[in-house]
Structure formats: structure tokens, C-alpha cells
């Protein structure tokens, strides 16, 4: 398999309060020979909040990002669960209706951009999906120089790359909700099963209902079954 080259959308928070997101990915991508062309003109995905304000606006903004990626001739990669979810939601609407797509593309015409459905098999995938589906875990395993050995790791996915299944590619890739466990195993560590792995972190309501938000955080990280037993031995 040839080395991967992808149009890369870093998102907003990786350049703000969550710098480790970009930093760790960049080190890994470099090591694995994944070449990234950063989309520095692209805009925020709207995080579901802009869609809540005006769905057409969210669709237009993401169509613009998709079109910028397509203009590089490369498939797109993101590193944020929220970006993946918000962008997939818009992509589903854009792909579903050619008249709507043409209407949205009107707003991009001045910039010489156009989002084309399925252009050369174009996709937008999270780094996790790229690692498992495009790079391959077997290949990744070969690159491990220091297995994580004794380390026990509890995966936390985030809602937006888990749900809703019909919108984010689970028909074609039904095991996407198990990729973190497989990745942890591939790196030699042991995944820990706990109730909160696929729950919500509560962040979207932190400024609206702090108590609900923090309680959700607590429920997703501190569940009684959480840290008592390994999910399964590493294979």
C-alpha cells in the first residue's frame, strides 16, 4: 500500500484548549509516513451549534471545507469527534439532494469552489478511522518499538463518532465503535471495559446546565465497574 496523503482539517479546539490533539497526531502521522496537507483556509464545522441556529448555514460552511479539501485532490482527515459528527451530518444532507447541493454551491461560487458528491471516492474520516481502515492495524503493530505492556487503558469515544449510526458510516464499517479497543491492543496495552466508554462527556451543556453537565462527566468516567477488571487479554 502506498503511503497516505490526505487533506487535513485540524479543527478549532486542537489549536486552542486541546493542543495535545494535534501534537500527538502530528508525531504519529510523521512516524507512519502519513502526509498531511493542512486546510488553513477552512472554517469551523459549527459543532452542531451552528446547525441548531440555521442548518443551511452549517451545511454551507462544511460544504466550503469539503470543497477546499476536494480542490487538493485528496480525501479529508479530521482529528476531532465533534468535527466528524457535525461534518457527517451536513455531508449526509448535501449528498442526499442534488438541487439542495447546487443551492449551497451557489454560495461558494465566488471563491471558485464547489462541493461534488462522491468526487473520486472522496471521504472525510477521523484519524482513528484512517489508522484502522486505511493504514491498517497489522501494519501499525509492526511499527511498535515499545509495546505499552502493563498499561491498562479505558477508551473514551465521544458521542459524535458513535452516533447516529446511519449517518456516520456504520453500515459499511460496523465495528467503528470498537476501534479504540483494537488500537489499544495493537499497541500492546490492555483495554479496560467500563460503562462510560460510549456515554456523553456532558460538555455541550456546560454553559447551560452546569450540574447536568458535570454529573454526566462523572457518570461517564467514574462508574463502579470501571477500573476493576480488564475487558479481555491482549491478543
Amino acid at each position: 500500500m502506498a503511503d497516505l496523503k490526505l487533506a487535513y482539517w485540524p479543527g478549532c479546539v486542537s489549536r486552542g484548549f486541546t493542543p495535545e490533539l494535534h501534537g500527538s497526531m502530528a508525531l504519529v502521522a510523521d512516524r507512519l509516513g502519513i502526509e498531511l496537507v493542512e486546510l488553513d483556509r477552512a472554517n469551523c464545522c459549527g459543532a452542531g451549534v451552528i446547525a441548531e441556529h440555521n442548518t443551511e448555514l452549517a451545511d454551507t460552511l462544511n460544504a466550503r471545507t469539503f470543497a477546499l479539501a476536494q480542490s487538493t485532490g485528496l480525501a479529508m482527515m479530521n482529528i476531532c469527534s465533534t468535527c466528524q459528527g457535525a461534518q457527517s451530518e451536513c455531508q449526509q444532507r448535501l449528498d442526499a439532494d442534488s438541487a439542495y447541493r447546487a443551492h449551497i454551491n451557489e454560495a461558494l461560487a465566488d471563491e471558485g469552489l464547489e462541493y461534488e458528491k462522491g468526487k473520486e471516492g472522496w471521504t472525510n474520516k477521523n484519524f482513528l478511522w484512517i489508522l484502522v481502515e486505511e493504514y491498517g492495524l497489522d501494519r501499525l503493530r509492526e511499527q511498535v518499538t515499545r509495546p505499552l505492556g502493563e498499561l491498562r487503558v479505558g477508551p473514551f469515544y465521544g458521542c459524535y463518532i458513535l452516533r447516529p449510526k446511519h449517518r456516520i458510516g456504520y453500515e459499511d464499517h460496523p465495528d467503528r465503535d470498537l476501534y479504540l479497543e483494537r488500537l489499544i491492543e495493537a499497541l500492546g496495552a490492555t483495554p479496560v471495559e467500563y460503562d462510560g466508554a460510549r456515554k456523553c462527556c456532558g460538555f455541550p451543556v456546560i454553559t447551560m446546565n452546569r450540574e447536568t453537565s458535570l454529573r454526566q462527566r462523572t457518570r461517564s468516567t467514574r462508574t463502579p465497574t470501571a477500573w476493576s477488571r480488564p475487558a479481555r487479554s491482549a491478543t
Binding site: E56, L57, D59, T60, R64, E106, L108, D110
Partner: peptide, 16 residues
């Protein structure tokens, strides 16, 4: 161009 996207979308507010 982002502003332009805003103007277009706020004018129409289509909801598919």
C-alpha cells in the same frame, strides 16, 4: 468568503 456563506444561508434558511 465565510461572510459570503453567512449572507447566502441567512437569506434562505432552507431546512432539508
Amino acid at each position: 468568503h465565510v461572510k459570503r456563506a453567512y449572507e447566502h444561508a441567512e437569506e434562505h434558511r432552507e431546512e432539508l
